[in-house]
Amino acid sequence: MTESPLELTPLFHVGPVAITSPVITTWGIMAAMLAFCLLTTRNLQLRPGKVQALLELVVGAIDHQAEEVIRRDPAPFRAVVGTIFLFILLANWSALLPGVEPPTARLETDAALALIVLAASGYFGVRLRGTRGYLKSFAQPTWAMIPLNIVEQITRTFSLVVRLFGNIMSGVFVIGIVLSLAGLFVPIPLMALELLSGTVQAYIFAILACVFIATAVSGDDAPAETSSKHGSTS
């Protein structure tokens, strides 16, 4: 019987914990990002170099998008939204490396991302509106909507998981099938297309995370904040 390509095969075990390839790839991405951050941010200057200017451009773009969607000072949300965007982007692009399967092509990674978005929306909702205010948002517009709002929280989390998983996994499968049928260099256009698709998916996931957070923190009982771009640390 042929094994399902969606099944994960543990590479090794650490005690009872099975270590799979998405975890290993994620560790690699994390190590690369940590090394890059340490190298590039250890000597920041008021007059930025090219790399610093690029980093500031990326961070500024993330702040701008988060502020546009959430309509608040983006500093508190920068870490979550930025990390989600950068991780998904690099994870999707990791497919370019030979023998590497992007972690986002696995359901567990996407589910972990969606869980973090769900937890972040709850965290920021409670932090900015208070527990009572956040829970009251489930009773909008009427108490009868409480079950539906709870279901909405679950379904939209699932939609995040399924959207990212379906897009990335399908791309990996298509490239794998074409590679097995046509030859070594034929899938290159598809891989380029997958780069674009990975970028778009990272952007969509991050924007949807902002939308969910904005839904959680918006309301009459939420304290107004003055927007101050790049003005405070996360």
Binding site: C37, E56, A79, T83
Partner: peptide
């Protein structure tokens, strides 16, 4: 990323 990327960039 918050510690080693976003915060230093925001600080600078």
């Amino acid at each position: 990323l918050s510690r080693f990327l976003f915060r230093p960039i925001a600080d600078i």
